[in-house]
Simulated assay, not measured.
Amino acid sequence: MNSNAAPMTVLDEDACWERLAAQQVGRLVTHVGDVVDIVPINFVVDGRGIVFRTAAGNKLAGLSINGDVVFEVDEFDGDARWSVVLRGEARVLSNEDEVAAAEALPLRPFVATLKPTFVRVEATSVSGRAFEFGPEPRREDVQEG
């Protein structure tokens, strides 16, 4: 670890969106009552939100009951070590113009399944951190603050 570098840096909002836009897969967290689910999804950034496709099933049913979601993307490869968390409100796109705009996005299912429903998550907040990995410092070298 670079001795002059902080082990963790808070990313500003623009840096968070840049990292989100550079990825294709993240994890969507939903909750209905006491049940919390986390599923991998492929997505695209669209403005200050994300769009993904899905089919009928538990994910879509859960989103229709409670659209409050958390979405997380990270990268821990080579020199890139960061995590971005987006909190927002998910809604199924049903307006003809919104669906047409979503269909024009570079978003295709990763697996050979029909996913006819487009969902948009409008961000209410986005936060992120970048990490500098290295050995744990010695306790006697760390000043309490």
Results as ranks from 00 to 15, higher is better:
G88H: 00
V45F: 01
N95D: 15
T9K: 05
L20F: 03
F133V: 09
A123P: 05
E140C: 07
K59Y: 13
V84C: 02
S94E: 15
V29P: 03
G49Y: 01
P116G: 06
F110C: 11
T30D: 13
G134N: 08
V111I: 11
I65Q: 15
A101P: 01
E96P: 07
A15T: 02
G145Y: 12
V51Y: 08
P135N: 13
L114D: 15
K115P: 02
L20V: 07
R53E: 04
A6F: 10
R138T: 09
G128Y: 01
G67S: 04
F43A: 03
Q24T: 13
F71K: 01
G26D: 02
E122K: 09
P116E: 10
E103M: 12
E89A: 14
A6K: 10
M1S: 13
A102V: 05
R48I: 03
A5D: 14
D12P: 02
G88I: 01
D46T: 03
E132T: 10
F118W: 08
G128K: 00
A80F: 01
A100D: 11
L105S: 07
V45K: 01
A5H: 07
E140K: 10
V111K: 11
E144T: 07
F110M: 13
G62S: 12
V99W: 03
G134V: 06
R120M: 04
T117R: 08
V92N: 02
G49Q: 00
T113E: 15
